[in-house]
Nucleic acid binder design. Sequence first.
DNA 1: AATAAATATTGACCGTGGTCATTTTTGCGA
DNA 2: TCGCAAAAATGACCACGGTCAATATTTATT
Lengths: 196, 196
Amino acid sequence: MTQPVQTRTLKTRARLLEAAREVISETSHGALRVEEVVRRAGVAKGTFFAHFKDKDALMDRLIGERMDLLLSDLEACPPPQSTADLVRDLGPFVAFMRSERYVFDVILRYSGAAAREEIGPIAATFERFILLLAPKLAAAPFRKDADPAMLAEGVQAFIFNALGLSFCALHSDDPLDGRLEAYFDLWLLPPGGATA
Amino acid sequence: MTQPVQTRTLKTRARLLEAAREVISETSHGALRVEEVVRRAGVAKGTFFAHFKDKDALMDRLIGERMDLLLSDLEACPPPQSTADLVRDLGPFVAFMRSERYVFDVILRYSGAAAREEIGPIAATFERFILLLAPKLAAAPFRKDADPAMLAEGVQAFIFNALGLSFCALHSDDPLDGRLEAYFDLWLLPPGGATA
DNA sequence: AATAAATATTGACCGTGGTCATTTTTGCGA
DNA sequence: TCGCAAAAATGACCACGGTCAATATTTATT
């Protein structure tokens, strides 16, 4: 064998991905239709499914790469000095997750490695999220009696919870941030530290 | 007006629900097909959608009623004396949520009142969950520096989180319970209480 | 009882994700 | 340069959720 894949394969996949990004940028994730993607990519429908297990796998990849970019920004932030700082630093990441109901649903479904043994892009992003956040939490003035990785997992859980509730009543951003901060205060701050 | 709905309506809806329960008990939630339900109920397809906004609305209702039953069992439990007690009492409720990946997905999607202004059965169940669990947590030997309702919300968030992870690697029940207890220890126990 | 208005039911039809036997393209050894 | 086997692409086809104009049934009015 020369290469595991032909260059043609790579090219076709790249065209599919580019077409998909185009569609999403013009409309939204939820409005993406496979038929529109293959039309723009100039390939047959079957080809799409030779490259992606299903439409969700494409979404997993596209959403995963967006989240990864956002995570790199988060990585560049210094350790938060308060829960309010943390909420602020998390802002863009959280904002993307709630940008569309459909996006949130996909993220939810794939955040836990998606029923497949192979870990997907979104699940990998959340692994990275924990790995990246744990040392920051450890360096922040937060409770020291718990494994930082576990604290990070809690932060993740509370984000999901707050987001789920935020999609309920369609209130603006404010209640979300406030709710997150309240969760974080209880979860991250050592008890007795009166100031929020 | 006499009644808001005709008796015919009630009968048809009951037949649809009964047919759906039948299908699920013979196969699974995920295997339910609307066409099979209407066939068994002896009505046309369009009739189904006159009674339920979509297939998910039927699932919302069926899954919601199951969870409600499980919640009543939980309600009958005395306040837990430890986080291990809590994990045990939560057992059947959690077991149902993880019984099928599809069920968990539906629950996740609808737990936050499902993008609709009207609150659905699953969302109502989680409201009841908080209302029911809060006083139990307050009566248990857990931390007293937080609003019990908030503690209950945290319990819910950690359940979702642990379940999401549990669907990843398909390990058995044990790691789930252990993970839950670890979360609860950190979230519910006053720091300093050394014993787990 | 006759008629009209409101409500429920019907089923042909559509959109869209996904499949698969067949055909085309590619890489490679003779 | 000519097969030939493996990989990739094709597009007709299917499954299934969901729609809607037409029809049937019930209820209210006289």
